[in-house]
Nucleic acid binder design. Structure first.
Lengths: 142, 142
DNA sequence: CAAGAAGGTTCAGTGGATGAAGTAACTGTA
DNA sequence: TACAGTTACTTCATCCACTGAACCTTCTTG
């Protein structure tokens, strides 16, 4: 992909616009419930299953030291808790509290509502989009 | 879209992953050239044509007061300049310097290279994706 | 010309992010 | 078993991004 394919540039431009917009919508939905975007993303990562902080750093694509602060703030608000992993006592598993799970669900509901970019697409197009997006994501092991 | 359409949830989940990834790639490409992601996005907005700061705030989806700081930092590094609009002396048009234009081009080249999500797609699929993304973006007046 | 609106700036405060240094816990090897 | 090295998380200093409120300057309108 070293050559400058004009099609790629078009796609990247469109992606760039969309991601900016999607991020803004996500932040707004989170903000409506007193969360920052990063906090909401972290919460979404642990809500299905408790995860070690190191995995969260990978999922959020940031440094582990940053995760400490994010978890600190969420914990202070009673939305997640640190559990020591019985298998490996260095590891802290981040689990949502009941309040955390509920809040995350509410943010997602809002996001669903707020994700109005999708309104431009008919159902078959959404399916197409989903399949394309999946194809762009490497399948994750964990 | 108040109902919880499972397809929408799938699409949103996929979008969420992709945007996180795309943002990270963008930041990395920018960082490789000494820019933050926000600075690179601002630079990309002005590189085709000088724009007033208020438009930049809209494009970046942030408060005008934030744009001041971004422009300050870019200006300090000689990448953009503030020009007074002859028509309306309240307005400051942000224009890239030559160094700014060149740097922006280099970041884009890197981004093109770094946007490896696209590698999973064949050319016809990229066209499909571009068209879908366009359909999701409202046409902007300016 | 006066009142109000609009474009930018300043300031204080919060949160997000990194990198380096530190602590505690695990692992492998002799 | 001892200990060297690695891994998981934390702490700290530092910078940038972002917001909201207060402010100045420059239009615009009655």
């Amino acid at each position: 992909m070293t050559r400058r394919d004009p099609l790629d540039l078009e796609v990247i431009t469109a992606l760039s616009e969309l991601t900016t917009r999607f991020f803004a919508d996500y932040d707004a939905a989170a903000g409506a419930h007193g969360l920052s975007g990063a906090q909401a993303r972290l919460l979404a990562l642990v809500v299905t299953e408790p995860r070690p902080m190191s995995k969260l750093a990978v999922g959020l694509r940031c440094e582990p030291s940053n995760v400490t602060g994010l978890v600190d703030r969420l914990e202070k608000h009673g939305l997640v808790e640190r559990r020591v992993d019985a298998q490996d006592r260095r590891v802290k598993l981040i689990a949502p509290t009941e309040a955390g799970s509920e809040l995350s669900a509410r943010v997602w509901a809002d996001l669903n509502f707020a994700a109005e970019p999708l309104r431009g697409l008919e159902q078959p197009e959404r399916i197409q989009l989903r399949d394309l997006l999946r194809k762009m994501s490497p399948h994750r092991a964990d």
